[in-house]
């Protein structure tokens, strides 16, 4: 693949929409043969990055190297080795799923006969392949979109929120498929706001905020550096518990959950969870739940600055807290 061992890299990628800066010098480094989770809050620049990487829009500055070679607006054929699902899947509603894939196969890289049925089988749509897409559910359209991205047996797969609309079984199947693709040497670049999903699936994670990469590394590296202990108390006792924990660690590292009343997150290594329990006990508060571990969500909130931007009422934050997120923390 690439001499550098990279499937994809960007250096100083910039893109503006009018006066709004969408990408502000984005540097991505995506090794070959991994699942790369690309995380960021809404408006951080994930979809803009996807559009640039698929040649839909052109960057104002910076460089892209794809599959070991530079990728500019004159290098569209580089995309023959790339499969992409950008934003929502797009199809002709009056054609069947199979006919849509055939129509798609007519553009870009040539596709061998029989590949359409192979990818339909892969995404579990073979039996419904003859149905018109207008009769498909959102999840089925998403599966068909993934099938379309796999049509040319790509070396690099770019997927924008691939779990959108999928049911739990579909999400598991998609995860297994993407893991399998990585295991046979293909590179999967997944943009998502489903933090728990990315935590389970990705080998390498990049976190983007305000158009810049704020952290990148293997999942293990990132989580080892960011421990968290979560405790649950009675919701009415949260202020007192927060005050007690604020004496144990920097008060800025203690954050009550807005989504789950009673839960408090403490940025502290999991080995010190007993100290957390004791600090609350000494304040005369009983802990009804405790989970220590390393949580991508906490890391995400810390790095993107979204925790402090959350709505105090807990109704909506400036970030998407994943609906499928691991709300109780991931035990170590």
């Amino acid at each position: 693949m690439s001499d550098s061992g990279l499937a994809l890299s960007t250096r100083g990628l910039k893109k503006s929409y009018g006066s709004r800066l969408a990408l502000d010098g984005l540097d991505l480094t995506v090794p070959t043969g991994v699942v790369y989770g690309f995380l960021g809050p809404n408006g951080a620049g994930k979809t803009t990055t996807m559009r640039v990487l698929t040649g839909l829009i052109h960057p104002d500055g910076g460089a892209i190297e794809m599959l070991g070679k530079p990728f500019t607006r004159r290098d569209r054929r580089r995309l023959f080795d790339v499969g992409a699902l950008v934003e929502s899947p797009a199809f002709y509603p009056y054609l069947s799923g199979r006919e849509n894939l055939r129509a798609l196969a007519a553009s870009g890289a040539p596709v061998p006969t029989g590949r359409v049925d192979e990818v339909l089988e892969l995404v579990g749509l073979r039996e419904r392949g003859g149905d018109k897409v207008s009769r498909y559910s959102l999840g089925m359209k998403q599966r068909l979109g993934i099938a379309g991205a796999l049509l040319n047996d790509p070396k690099l797969l770019l997927l924008d929120e691939p779990a959108n609309g999928l049911d739990p079984a579909g999400i598991v199947a998609m995860r297994e498929t993407l893991r399998h693709l990585a295991s046979i040497g293909k590179t999967v670049f997944v943009s998502s706001h489903l933090l728990a999903e990315v935590q389970q699936m990705a080998d390498v994670v990049g976190i983007i905020a305000a158009g810049r990469l704020v952290r990148e590394g293997t999942m293990q590296e990132l989580l080892a550096a960011e421990g968290v202990v979560r405790v649950k108390v009675e919701p009415g006792e949260v202020p007192a518990a927060v005050a007690a924990l604020g004496r144990l660690v920097d008060p800025g590292h203690v954050s009550p959950s807005t989504a789950e009343p009673g839960w408090i997150s403490v940025q502290i290594t999991p080995e010190r969870s007993a100290e957390v329990n004791r600090a609350i006990g000494e304040a005369g508060i009983w802990v009804s739940g405790l989970a220590s571990g390393n949580d991508l969500e906490e890391l995400f909130l810390t790095l993107t600055g979204a925790a402090s931007a959350g709505d105090p009422d807990g109704t909506f934050a400036s970030i998407d807290r994943s609906a499928g997120g691991d709300s109780t923390g991931t035990p170590s």
Binding site: G55, L56, L79, A90, L104, A109
Partner: peptide, 22 residues
């Protein structure tokens, strides 16, 4: 118009197809 409205043009371009040839 439907190629833009349905997003099918976008999908083909993302596959590396020449826009004008399409």
């Amino acid at each position: 118009g439907s190629e833009w409205t349905w997003g099918t043009f976008k999908t083909s371009v993302a596959r590396g197809e020449s826009r004008s040839r399409y």
